Amino acid sequence: MFKPLELMGLLDDVRALRSTHWFPPIETVPEWIVYSLPDGMWLLSYMFAMEFIWNNDGKHIRIFFVWAMPAAIIAHEFSQLMGLASGTWDILDLTSYSIAIIIYLLTKKTIIMTQSMSLKLICSCIVAAVFVIGAASCTTSSLTSKYQQALDKQLQQNGASNSNQSPTSN
């Protein structure tokens, strides 16, 4: 994720920005913001992107591309609930997807159907900014924390099992 920033010479700036106190420590952020909100933001961004891309290519193809991902994501979430797909069912994930869909439905006529290209550009930039900020601030920190916890647990289990074993003497 950070390779393009490194190639543009912006990685040090991003690291400095991330080390400031603009964002609270990840431990103090509610779990739904860390784990579920980015999913909803991704979905909302996807839906608007597909609406912008396929807006002039006919109703049926636009509807297919806009709604294919939400349908697949919700089906996958329910498949997790029934044990048919890997992963963990989470009602908060489903809620974040539902909120993204509601926001899309409430705002699409105002934003997408306007003839003003400047309004479309402004709205596109806002959606993109929210997407990037949310994904970068939540996902990276949560994954690092999640993997670190799993690694710590594995190390503790291995340490406990190794200490219970008695060395054999030759």
Score class of each variant (00 low, 15 high):
Met1Gln: 11
Phe2Gly: 12
Phe2Ala: 06
Phe2Gln: 05
Pro4Phe: 13
Glu6Ser: 12
Leu11Trp: 00
Asp12Ala: 10
Asp13Ala: 13
Leu17Phe: 13
Ser19Arg: 06
Trp22Val: 12
Trp22Thr: 08
Phe23His: 10
Phe23Asn: 08
Phe23Ile: 06
Ile26Val: 13
Thr28Lys: 14
Val29Asn: 09
Val29Ile: 15
Pro30Leu: 02
Trp32Arg: 08
Ile33Met: 09
Val34Leu: 13
Tyr35Cys: 02
Leu37Ile: 01
Pro38His: 02
Asp39Leu: 03
Asp39Tyr: 07
Gly40Asn: 02
Met41Ala: 06
Ser45Asp: 04
Met47Tyr: 01
Ala49Pro: 13
Met50Lys: 09
Glu51Pro: 09
Lys59Trp: 15
His60Gly: 10
Arg62Asn: 06
Ile63Asn: 11
Ile63Gln: 07
Phe65Asn: 07
Val66Ile: 15
Ala68Cys: 11
Pro70Thr: 03
Ile73Asp: 03
Ile73Pro: 01
Ile73Arg: 02
Ala75Thr: 07
Ala75Gln: 00
Ala75Asp: 02
His76Ser: 10
Phe78Val: 02
Phe78His: 02
Gln80Ile: 03
Gln80Glu: 15
Leu81Glu: 06
Met82Tyr: 13
Gly83Ser: 11
Ala85Asn: 11
Gly87Phe: 00
Trp89Cys: 03
Asp90Ile: 01
Asp90Ala: 05
Leu92Tyr: 03
Leu92His: 09
Thr95Cys: 04
Thr95Ser: 00
Ser96Gln: 04
Tyr97His: 01
Ile101Lys: 03
Ile102Ala: 09
Leu106Gly: 01
Thr107Gly: 06
Lys109Trp: 10
Thr110Gly: 15
Thr110Asp: 11
Thr110Ala: 10
Ile111Tyr: 01
Ile111Gly: 03
Ile111Pro: 02
Met113Glu: 14
Met113Asn: 11
Thr114Asp: 04
Gln115Ile: 04
Gln115Gly: 06
Ser116Ile: 13
Met117Pro: 03
Met117Ala: 05
Ser118Asp: 11
Lys120Ala: 04
Ile122Val: 15
Cys123His: 09
Ser124Phe: 15
Cys125Leu: 15
Val127Thr: 14
Ala129Val: 07
Ala129Pro: 07
Val132Lys: 08
Val132Met: 05
Gly134Met: 00
Ala135Trp: 00
Ala135Leu: 01
Ala135Lys: 04
Ala135His: 01
Ala136Pro: 04
Ser137Thr: 08
Ser137Met: 09
Thr140Ser: 12
Ser141Thr: 12
Leu143Thr: 13
Leu143Pro: 05
Thr144Cys: 03
Ser145Asn: 10
Tyr147His: 11
Gln148Gly: 04
Gln149Ala: 07
Gln149Arg: 06
Ala150Lys: 04
Ala150His: 05
Leu151Glu: 13
Leu151Gly: 04
Asp152Phe: 07
Lys153Met: 06
Lys153Gln: 08
Gln154Gly: 01
Gln154Ser: 09
Leu155Val: 12
Gln156His: 06
Gln156Glu: 11
Gln157Thr: 09
Asn158Ile: 03
Asn162Ala: 07
Gln165Lys: 02
Ser166Trp: 03
Ser166Pro: 01
Pro167Trp: 10
Ser169Met: 13
Ser169Trp: 14
Asn170Glu: 12
